[in-house]
């Protein structure tokens, strides 16, 4: 399988990365090189093989359903580019 410029632009939109026409064209070539390389996986017989879900056979750890910390609003917004009274500020989303 290979991708065209239109697909690259669609994928960039899904990934929320702005791309120029020039970027999209360069990326098309690069992505096709990588997709060409991974193509060889199709020759592997995987009948009856489960997809890997966990590399180490282990039971999912669960913790007690109790509060372990909190009251850290100031810490949480400390690194944000724009905040007001411990809220994240974003451009208007709903008209």
């Amino acid at each position: 399988m290979s991708v065209d410029v239109k697909t690259v632009k669609r994928v960039a939109r899904l990934a929320r990365i702005a791309v120029s026409e020039e970027d999209a064209e360069r990326m098309t070539g690069e992505l096709n090189a990588i997709l060409g390389f991974v193509e060889q996986l199709n020759e592997v017989d995987v009948s009856g093989v489960e997809p890997m879900t966990s590399v180490t056979p282990m039971e999912m750890k669960k913790r007690q359903d109790v509060v372990t910390d909190g009251n850290k609003a100031a810490d949480i917004v400390a690194n944000a580019p724009a905040t007001e009274e411990n809220f994240f500020l974003v451009p208007k989303v709903v008209e």
Partner: peptide
């Protein structure tokens, strides 16, 4: 999915 199956192999 194909890659995760190969990973198991």
């Amino acid at each position: 999915l194909q890659a995760q199956k190969v990973r198991n192999l």
